[in-house]
């Protein structure tokens, strides 16, 4: 097990190197650059060259890349060209917001999706099942920005409720923090619960057909034991795979929802960085997001072995 974890963590290295090269290249290739962003398109070539030299952008790409990646290896993600603020502390503080949002959204989606998915599988082809399937379809197909705007409209017009603006950390003021977070988290939770619900339904349905469920019933088990202790546990692997991917991508920042609710999360930081062509910011964010994604995948794989005794990493 220890060997496996070590091996998997080492595998992260080539992945991150690949991603760092890719994102560096993409940032150089997209039209527009940070210099014209700061000086405007009318600036004289002399002024441009001066500024480029200041940020080291006049050096060959290879040198720029090696300089950047060398810093990253020492834990130095560089500074933002726009604000001169060091990037890593900024990423970490914004990641706290995104992580909280993700955890809340994931909990909300599980609370909705797993019980309803199981219910739909057990009561297949009944009214309850149809209701769940329609709900899941809506969750999968309604984009979260539409849901966000709709919810804000309904809450403000019908209930005169406005989600408080201005982010406050959980440790500073937990109640106000939750007030700010609950709406975006619920929207993300509902959006991702659609696919979890579908996966739960089909996976549980599949397991319920298997012989050992009949054995369990033949032993005198209650439906509750047969469904939750046996069917759901056997159905968990594909559900966890899906949840792992969802958490991975949510931790990378829910760009649109963060933007709508003006949450200072990682997605918002990345988006602003891209808009301003702030190379080191975008590169740092993407690298960090990739690292988190790979880490979540590793945790998912370790969870498999914990749930299913047939899977072992020795």
């Amino acid at each position: 097990m220890k060997n496996y974890i070590l091996r998997r963590i080492l595998q992260v290295v080539p992945v991150l190197i690949g991603i760092s090269i890719l994102i560096f290249a993409v940032m150089k290739m997209i039209p527009g650059d940070v210099i014209s962003g700061i000086l405007g398109v009318e600036a004289t070539p002399e002024l441009r060259a001066q500024l480029a030299a200041k940020y080291g952008l006049d050096r060959p790409y290879l040198v720029q890349y090696l300089d950047w990646i060398g810093g990253v290896l020492h834990g130095d993600f560089g500074e933002s060209i726009r604000t001169s603020a060091p990037i890593l502390p900024e990423i970490l503080s914004r990641f706290k917001v995104t992580a909280e949002l993700t955890i809340l959204a994931a909990f909300i989606s599980w609370i909705i999706a797993i019980p309803l998915g199981v219910l739909a599988a057990v009561k297949r082809n009944t009214l309850a099942d149809r209701f769940v399937r329609v709900f899941a379809l809506l969750g999968v197909s309604v984009p979260n920005f539409a849901l966000s705007i709709l919810l804000i409209l309904v809450l403000s017009l019908a209930f005169s409720y406005f989600p408080p603006l201005g982010y406050v950390g959980f440790l500073e003021d937990p109640l106000r923090n939750l007030q700010i977070m609950i709406l975006p988290a619920a929207i993300l939770g509902v959006t991702i619960s659609g696919s979890v619900m579908r996966m739960t339904r089909s996976s549980v349905l599949e397991v319920l057909r298997q012989d050992f469920i009949k054995t369990v019933r033949a032993k005198g088990a209650s439906e509750r034991v047969a469904i939750f202790r046996h069917a759901l546990r056997n159905a968990l692997i594909p559900i966890i795979t899906l949840i792992g991917m969802q958490i991975g991508s949510l931790l990378g920042g829910a760009v649109i929802v963060e933007q709508i609710f003006s949450l200072p999360g990682l997605g918002q930081m990345t988006l602003t960085g891209i808009n301003q062509r702030d190379y080191p910011v975008v590169q740092g964010c993407v690298l960090f997001i990739a690292f988190i994604y790979v880490l979540v995948n590793l945790l998912t794989d370790l969870l498999y072995a914990y749930i299913d005794p047939r899977i072992s990493y020795d």
Partner: peptide, 28 residues
């Protein structure tokens, strides 16, 4: 259903055709 459960596994039990799939793979 509750009365049936009391009967199953106690007064009447059953063994199946496919032993390989008749036990839950997740439990000892």
């Amino acid at each position: 259903p509750a009365e049936l459960r009391k009967l199953r596994g106690k007064d009447i039990s059953m063994i199946f055709q496919e032993p390989m799939t008749a036990l839950d793979p997740m439990y000892t």
